[in-house]
Design a protein around this nucleic acid. Structure first.
Length: 507
RNA sequence: GCCCCGGUCGUCUAGCCCGGUCAAGGAUGUCGGCCUUUCGAGCCGAGGACCCGGGUUCAAAUCCCGGCCGGGGCACCA
């Protein structure tokens, strides 16, 4: 008798193997639709600087893509609840950067417009005995927290706390002297749940939008709970640094009888070779080491766009990364690979020669006319045309290609003709013409001839490479991405007439 | 110290919930070849991973326990 251990019947055919098609499903979509009619995601940055790739590629992009996929809504919320760390300019930057990435939102909330609402909720919680005004110093409270002890204020009457709350609003307490806390449990195993703070006083720094109008400001968790609820957010997508915040928000919701949205905390995103902390960036900016938030050395959206990274590449990257819970070390190479495929068909080709070396060719059958395609797969875009009338024929090659120019060796000047190297010295290379037909098996080298233009390419490390570029490059529009053949893809940032200034994209 | 999360090719990811189809798929990078008047794109091929140890089971990448490693949090920041 044969015994089979395998399943005898292949019941359901399982999910297809291999590449995932699009985004994995979001949990709780059907339930959210039943309850709220549609799903709503949100992206809630603080205006503390320019958005960077790590922040955007998941939190922002996936919030948008999921909203789009499920035909839901996306809320963009500016978390401007700490006037000490935010700046006015960044509000607009956030909107601009997101728009350039093709991210569209259905509702924009500036949290500072909503403080009255926050006060209303705070008062409600205090009235219900669910929150209280604590006058411990931060230090002192930390001690209570460590000891799982309640602070004496906690059990004062509701009337007293209401009085204190009023004092907070009216100016009876100064910065640091009072804070509203949610009454949870001072001996909760998770320390963040031991009566977390909800609102605090900031009176010495004017708010960039509201000035000194308010002196009581909500903390992140309180603002999130209220704003997510009021704008009917069903799915929160954020990094796992917020894991414990989800628990706090859940407690706030519970106290208010609200339902907590589904919170998905994805793993940390580390960018290989970058320091993404805003602290580092601000420091570099202050010291003048960085030219701005769009400095090419930075992984900010502004810098990436400036270099020529396409919104579509970031979108594809987001799809690829999705919402996995483990930490990842993201390599820029992955982004470059995606971008390269997008940019390759659009980028016209030009010859750029870094650190030029002169090549003099004798014996060429003049005149010679050559037409070089702007793009190898798109003839319709036209040509770069050249005419050599009188001897000697002179071109420049890149010093990097010097290795091919050994006496007696043959080299093809791409799209021009083949030469044999006669003599190499410090100043120049002398060659003889040996035919125009494409010859296989010999090195092919690009070149630039007179009249040429000067070009500068700013590399990702901030260094500038200088060289010469063909005359036809003056047709490149500012902002256009081209391929400097056998060198790199680059974006023309400025055409200064005599000098073209490029930003290096990737090879 | 306390509270949490996670560990599949170098990297990113599929599979894990519902154990067998997985001697683990895709992408990227690497190497080789083709194509191409680019070191780009495209095409073909190669190499490359289930953290470790127990347990459950006929069968474990998948379930359970322990360990190890990585990460986050313990702000009157977000």
């Amino acid at each position: 008798m044969e015994r089979t251990y395998g399943r005898e019947i292949l019941e359901v055919s399982r999910k297809p193997r291999g590449t995932r098609e699009g985004l994995p499903p979001l949990p709780g979509v059907e339930e959210a639709r039943r309850k709220y009619g549609t799903i709503t995601t949100r992206f809630a940055p603080a205006p503390t600087g320019a958005l960077h790739i790590g922040q955007v590629v998941r939190a922002a992009m996936l919030s948008y893509l999921y909203a789009e996929r499920y035909d839901g809504r996306m809320v963009l919320r500016i978390e401007d609840t700490d006037p000490r760390v935010i700046k006015k300019a960044y509000y607009q930057w956030i909107l601009d950067d997101l728009r350039k990435l093709g991210i569209k939102w259905d509702q924009l909330i500036i949290v500072s417009d909503r403080f009255e609402r926050h006060y209303e909720i705070a008062e409600k919680l205090i009235e219900g005995g669910l929150a209280y005004v604590c006058t411990c110093t931060a230090d002192k409270f930390r001690k209570y927290k460590e000891a799982c002890a309640e602070c004496p204020d906690r059990n004062l009457s509701v009337e007293e706390h209401l009085r204190r709350w009023n004092d907070m609003l009216e100016g009876g307490y100064s910065e640091g002297e009072a804070v509203v806390r949610l009454k949870v449990d001072m001996s909760h195993p998770n320390p963040v749940l031991r009566d977390p703070p909800l609102l605090r006083i900031i009176e010495s720094t004017p708010h960039p939008l509201k000035g000194f109008k308010y002196r009581v400001y909500p903390l992140y968790n309180f603002a999130c709970a209220i704003e997510d609820h009021d704008s009917k957010v069903t799915h929160i997508i954020r990094a796992k640094e917020h894991e414990h915040n989800a628990a706090v928000q859940s407690e706030i919701c519970k106290a208010l009888g609200w339902e907590m949205p589904i919170a998905i905390q994805y793993g940390m995103v580390y960018l290989e070779g970058y320091k993404v902390h805003k602290r580092h960036i601000r420091e570099g900016l202050r010291k003048g080491e960085l030219s701005g938030w769009d400095d090419v050395r930075l992984p900010t959206i502004r810098a990436l766009l400036r270099r020529g990274i396409q919104a579509e590449a970031i979108r594809r990257l987001a799809m690829e990364l999705s919402l996995t819970p483990h930490d990842i070390k993201l390599s820029m190479e992955t982004l470059y690979a995606l971008n390269r495929k997008i940019v390759d068909p659009i980028a016209n080709r030009y010859y750029f020669v870094e650190d030029p070396v002169k090549v003099v060719i004798e014996g060429a059958p003049l005149p010679i006319d050559v037409k070089i395609r702007l793009h190898p797969q798109h003839l319709e875009r036209g040509f770069r045309e050249y005419r050599f009338l009188r001897p000697p024929v002179e071109v420049y090659i890149s010093r990097r290609d010097l290795e091919f120019f050994k006496e007696g060796h043959e080299v093809r000047l791409i799209e021009l003709f083949n030469v044999r190297v006669k003599e190499v010295n410090e100043m120049m290379i002398k060659c003889t013409y040996i035919g125009g037909e494409v010859k296989q098996g010999i090195p092919k080298v690009h070149w630039v001839s007179e009249p040429y233009l000067h070009a500068e390419v700013m590399k990702p490390d901030g260094n500038v490479v200088r060289g010469i570029i063909e005359f036809h490059a003056q047709n490149i529009r500012e902002g256009e991405i081209v391929q400097l053949e056998r060198y790199a893809f680059a974006r023309l940032e400025r055409n200064e007439g005599e000098v073209l200034k490029f930003i290096y994209l990737h090879n």
